[in-house]
Amino acid sequence: MAALRLSRSKVYDLIRSNQLRSITIGRARRIPADALRQYFDTQMEEAA
């Protein structure tokens, strides 16, 4: 949430819509660093 500067619910919306990959470890949801980079790259391409 902090890296994206988005609310918790928006991050979960992105995960549910498959725009942002995540993994579950136990009960914790984690977003790999490469998934963040891929999401940023995709957003930059769409904005250009």
Results as ranks from 00 to 15, higher is better:
residue 41 D to Q: 13
residue 11 V to H: 03
residue 15 I to G: 01
residue 12 Y to K: 12
residue 5 R to N: 14
residue 28 A to C: 08
residue 1 M to I: 08
residue 13 D to V: 06
residue 23 I to Y: 13
residue 3 A to N: 09
residue 33 A to D: 08
residue 48 A to W: 02
residue 45 E to D: 11
residue 48 A to E: 10
residue 18 N to G: 07
residue 43 Q to L: 15
residue 8 R to P: 04
residue 24 T to L: 12
residue 10 K to F: 11
residue 36 L to W: 01
residue 8 R to M: 06
residue 24 T to N: 12
residue 37 R to C: 07
residue 1 M to N: 06
residue 38 Q to W: 05
residue 13 D to P: 01
residue 6 L to T: 04
residue 43 Q to T: 10
residue 38 Q to A: 15
residue 4 L to H: 03
residue 42 T to V: 08
residue 17 S to M: 12
residue 42 T to R: 13
residue 26 G to C: 06
residue 46 E to M: 14
residue 45 E to S: 12
residue 13 D to T: 11
residue 21 R to V: 00
residue 44 M to I: 10
residue 7 S to T: 14
residue 43 Q to S: 07
residue 9 S to V: 07
residue 11 V to Y: 04
residue 18 N to K: 15
residue 20 L to R: 01
residue 12 Y to I: 09
residue 31 I to T: 03
residue 14 L to T: 01
residue 22 S to I: 03
residue 2 A to R: 14
residue 3 A to D: 10
residue 5 R to T: 07
residue 47 A to V: 02
residue 32 P to H: 06
residue 34 D to R: 03
residue 39 Y to N: 02
residue 15 I to C: 00
residue 27 R to E: 09
residue 16 R to V: 03
residue 42 T to D: 14
residue 8 R to A: 12
residue 25 I to C: 10
residue 36 L to I: 13
residue 40 F to N: 05
residue 28 A to M: 11
residue 5 R to F: 01
residue 39 Y to I: 02
residue 19 Q to W: 05
residue 27 R to K: 14
residue 40 F to Y: 15
residue 20 L to A: 00
residue 47 A to N: 04
residue 1 M to C: 07
residue 24 T to C: 11
residue 44 M to K: 11
residue 15 I to L: 04
residue 38 Q to I: 04
residue 30 R to H: 14
residue 19 Q to M: 15
residue 34 D to H: 05
residue 30 R to W: 14
residue 44 M to N: 07
residue 43 Q to V: 13
residue 3 A to Q: 08
residue 24 T to R: 15
residue 33 A to P: 01
residue 14 L to D: 02
residue 18 N to A: 13
residue 35 A to I: 04
residue 47 A to C: 03
residue 31 I to K: 02
residue 25 I to Q: 12
residue 28 A to Q: 14
residue 2 A to E: 15
residue 43 Q to C: 13
residue 43 Q to D: 00
residue 30 R to I: 09
residue 45 E to M: 10
residue 6 L to H: 04
residue 15 I to P: 01
residue 14 L to C: 01
residue 32 P to W: 05
residue 14 L to E: 06
residue 12 Y to T: 07
residue 3 A to E: 11
residue 30 R to K: 15
residue 37 R to Y: 09
residue 26 G to H: 05
residue 22 S to W: 04
residue 1 M to E: 11
residue 34 D to F: 01
residue 35 A to L: 06
residue 1 M to Y: 08
residue 44 M to A: 14
residue 3 A to R: 13
residue 47 A to W: 03
residue 7 S to E: 10
residue 15 I to N: 00
residue 21 R to S: 06
residue 16 R to M: 05
residue 26 G to P: 01
residue 15 I to S: 02
residue 3 A to H: 07
residue 35 A to F: 03
residue 11 V to I: 08
residue 24 T to W: 04
residue 18 N to F: 06
residue 44 M to D: 09
residue 29 R to E: 03
residue 25 I to W: 08
residue 6 L to D: 02
residue 7 S to W: 02
residue 41 D to C: 04
residue 35 A to N: 02
residue 47 A to T: 05
residue 15 I to Y: 00
residue 22 S to H: 10
residue 35 A to C: 04
residue 6 L to S: 04
residue 25 I to N: 08
residue 31 I to R: 04
residue 21 R to Q: 09
residue 1 M to T: 09
residue 13 D to F: 10
residue 48 A to I: 08
residue 47 A to G: 02
residue 16 R to I: 00
residue 20 L to V: 03
residue 25 I to E: 10
residue 27 R to L: 08
residue 27 R to Q: 11
residue 19 Q to F: 03
